[in-house]
Design a protein around this nucleic acid. Structure first.
Lengths: 144, 144
DNA sequence: AAACTATGCAGAATGACATTCGATAGATCA
DNA sequence: TGATCTATCGAATGTCATTCTGCATAGTTT
């Protein structure tokens, strides 16, 4: 994992549809060598997959909120329960007063409310504290 | 934006390297028609880009935290200031007691502390409230 | 209702590109 | 020094994206 690998990751995070020849030119390698580098990054699990980036607003997910979930018992093993709610995009076990933090995307505030309702149905969940996003300043890939 | 489009988005979010012929077979279309569908999804901005997904831990970003930022003045226009800190992956203006919520990925807790220090240097920032993630249950694309 | 128009699809043709391979140069180790 | 291993280049090959033509369907106008 040298500097060339890091450069390649940055470029591929911006646009993974670029030909290997162009990628190689950007980092000073041939297409073949570039291909081999990227193949190994995949093999090592540094690159997990190639995927399209979808605009949430364009598919009716214009409302974003973060929700702190309080619980009376351990819910760290209830990942599947949270995953069963499709509007939840991320779920993390956290340190601090709450026990789980989830990122929710819905179409409307009413739907957000409904998601909260469904979270209360999860065993051990005793409270929620929702923070609605007014404006997203930026969302970007992690820089290597 | 019909059901076939939604299916295509799901498939492309899972794996955008699949050939159009295979994609088409999955949704019951020819390769040419599938290509046309995807082209239009890009044109409309539903698909923003194609990018690789990088494992944060593999590039030395194993520590994840969410930070609520308090301020004494309006920092909603300071997006560039937050963006200048590379460890910040997302920044959102929020409703509620704090004014900005950021998602931070660092290598160590010490580096997290340093990020907090740099955030205090931003004009108007008066306090931070960091929540460290112990375990990420899941992170997934938005489902159309 | 008939004609017209627009849209979406299938299937084939073309060219770009990914992928593979052999050869070479440099690096590491004994 | 010799041997082994790794990374690279450049070329060969096949796959696949992309484009185009023709057709069918649905919607619109007269």
């Amino acid at each position: 994992m040298d500097d060339v690998d890091r450069q390649l990751l940055v470029l591929l995070q911006q646009d993974a549809s670029r030909p290997y020849a162009a990628l190689g030119q950007a980092v000073g390698l041939s297409a073949g060598a570039t291909h081999e580098r990227v193949r190994k990054l995949r093999e090592r699990g540094v690159i997990r997959r190639t995927a399209v980036d979808v605009d949430p607003a364009a598919i009716g997910r214009g409302v974003l909120a973060f929700v702190m979930v309080d619980s009376t018992k351990w819910v760290g093993d209830s990942g599947d329960q949270f995953a069963a709610i499709p509007e939840i995009q991320e779920a993390h076990v956290i340190a601090g007063s709450a026990s789980v933090l989830v990122k929710v995307r819905t179409s409307t505030k009413e739907q957000l409310q409904d998601v909260l309702r469904r979270m209360y149905a999860i065993e051990g969940v005793s409270g929620t504290q929702a923070t609605v996003v007014l404006e997203t300043l930026f969302e970007r890939p992690v820089t290597p």
